[in-house]
Design a protein around this nucleic acid. Structure first.
Lengths: 233, 233, 233, 233
DNA sequence: TATGAATGAGTCTTCATTCAT
DNA sequence: AATGAATGAAGACTCATTCAT
């Protein structure tokens, strides 16, 4: 009963603001309240950083809103002003990550058509390395049970789609279905980059080299496959 | 802050029992069984099965001891008699999984020396498929935060070691360091098999075929590498 | 226990402002209006209307100051400028209702002396019907725990007094005590009019007719009683 | 998510017990856990009494589970073991009241056919007086927003139905519709008995006498109406 | 003066764990 | 030894109220 009341109220209270804020709403799209003053933006940023830290360290379930509030020097009430639920915070974080990632992917896609599979493989690994820090958040939020299922699914779809597109740019003759299957597998392989992070530096270096090799081998094999199929026709 | 205090306290309170438990867990999960107190063994088995089910379904955090007790028709007090903490149950489950897996790996290792890399690749994928059901438990317990960090780490080490051994059996000339690096990567790749489970049947089939191909390609490349290096000497 | 401490504290903190408020509330709810600061009056009016709406819809407890502020397009800070507490707003609303009602009662009282009990009964029911919309506010605020106990008690007294007066006007020979007792009972009966509102139209119609009949019968019986007692002397 | 888990678990855990307890389940029908040991029954009783007290004093919203737990010398967790939500406690209390009331009504119904309207009126008022203490709880729970709407509605229906039946027993010739309309009105009138409780003793006495008179007059008038209608045919 | 961000006590509820019977 | 009642710390979230800008 309370919940309904609350939601109703909020909708009422937010209607008009929703409009003028819709442009900035991208980051906080998940039901989060947009700050209207300078101070608020700083606060939101602080909360998000704390959120990243805590979710990454403990995982979605074990992370507590109280700790996130404390780490960002925010009263719990203020945290909830901007992010009306734990899930909404996780969603916002994920969204931001998706956006960052997506735009990076777009850049990669542009260059992909001019790359050999080997080059592309390196580009992919480098790309994952550049995401590094954020990546572990995504793992904590997506691979665990964090946030809404729906958004997590959408996130996965988006990422897979981006990779599939890049693959088709770089390796013509791939059917859509093929590129999508390969995207899933490739994405999985690339996730190993994030995993490497937890190892000791020496091991990490070797691991990264190996992942690089694997990726290259995979993409080259994919290329030859496509060529074979083509010449067979 | 509170949370930490709490956890600390708990750990303290449990230390001594942990010992009793680990004996028992080992005893139970290894084949050896004490004939006396048959009832107790049945009970423990029931609890463990319920634990597997619940942890798999809900993940470590969301699983409750009460539900595990209920599903195994055990009074909560009895459950705690055998497994003095949630963590200890997760650990026991993981241990059993490790042992099962390890012995399977051993069998695989015996045959590995007679296999070509391509055959080995298929064997690995088939192997993962055969673990399927149990595998999702490991995911729930290892990739999330279930069980003690320490044991999870040990679990990973064991698995990696098994794979490394197999690799060296099948592909001579690999140094220990190489085989270990490759084992990490290969294990990661093979985890995709478990992930494929969540996809629709049609996708799943394509995915598995692709993973198979990737694994084969990877192992074959590994072989040629080793050969090259050898002939270069 | 905590709750009590909290409430106490709040009351303490507000005492002095209560005075300022009650002046204002009285001023506002009586006809007199200060020409200066027109804006403020509009704002107060808007707040009060929103307050009526929200309290009526949700009841005192579930109503939130934030929603009342939003519905009246008022910043929460401004709302608190005029009504320093939720209770003070409820009180102001109740006061206004009492005043409205009282003046209406006064009009009724003027005509009452010329009415037969039967006519008076109808007049009462019609009167309650005319209050309808406001009545539900009173229910939300008086029958629940809205506003201060003290003011609610005063409100009840006033209303009962008005009715008692009317009764004595219409039915001479009633002692003061009698009229007061009857006022309490009559008021209770008339509240059924408000309750009828929640029923389906068909039922509502029948209900109102029945209440009308009951009221008539009651007042007529009261009359005969008085007559009897008189002639018995 | 948690909620679902919880519910699921409970259902599982309770299945078998539900059976052997179904006979006693009447009182705690609203999802409450039945105690299985002596101690538990005492506890449940204590909780319910505390619940009655607190709900009556503060109303549903303002009552806190913490206070109810404290007043019944129960740990909050124990309270929730028996009554898994605030609403379920309110429901259980209401149910018990309904049952008490209903059986009393049944007894009244048996005698009603032999009563004159005047006697019936007195019987009704006496009846309400006998419910006294419990009545104010019903007011707190039914007339406010306490508990689930559905159950409150059902409660009202049941009570009205009982009264309607009694009326038809005592005053033949009433149509079903008539008796139902009159039941609603009569019930409302009788509620004044509970209200009288809050007055000073002297006032209370006079009030009760007046309510008695009103009820008598109403029922007698109802009788004559019915007679008139009959002879007019 | 108006605004809305900040505050934090308090609410309901959950669940691992202990302990009396 | 088995049972399940008891415990209470902790978590997510709300909202009346204050105060800096």
């Amino acid at each position: 009963m309370h919940a309904e009341i609350h939601l109703t109220m909020r909708s009422d209270a937010r209607k008009e603001q929703q409009l003028k804020l819709s442009d900035m709403a991208t980051t906080l799209s998940s039901g989060a309240q947009e700050p209207k003053r300078q101070r608020g933006h700083l606060r939101v940023a602080a909360i998000m950083e704390a959120g990243v830290a805590v979710f990454t360290e403990k995982g979605y379930d074990a992370a507590t809103m109280t700790e996130i509030a404390a780490r960002s020097n925010t009263a719990i009430g203020s945290l909830y002003r901007f992010f009306p639920s734990k899930e909404s915070l996780a969603d916002a974080l994920l969204s931001r990550y998706v956006e960052d990632t997506t735009s990076s992917f777009t850049a990669l896609a542009d260059q992909a058509s001019a790359m050999t599979p080997g080059q592309l493989a390196d580009a992919f690994v480098d790309f994952m390395l550049s995401l590094q820090s954020q990546r572990s958040l995504a793992v904590a939020l997506v691979d665990s049970r964090g946030g809404s299922d729906e958004r997590r699914a959408r996130f996965r779809e988006t990422t897979r789609g981006s990779i599939a597109t890049i693959l088709r740019n770089a390796i013509p003759h791939l059917t859509k279905a093929q590129s999508e299957t390969k995207a899933v597998v490739l994405l999985h392989v690339l996730k190993a980059v994030a995993g490497a992070n937890d190892e000791k530096p020496a091991v990490r270096r070797r691991l990264l080299a190996e992942i690089r090799k694997l990726t290259r081998v995979y993409l080259e094999a994919t290329q030859s496959d496509a060529d074979d199929r083509l010449s067979a026709e």
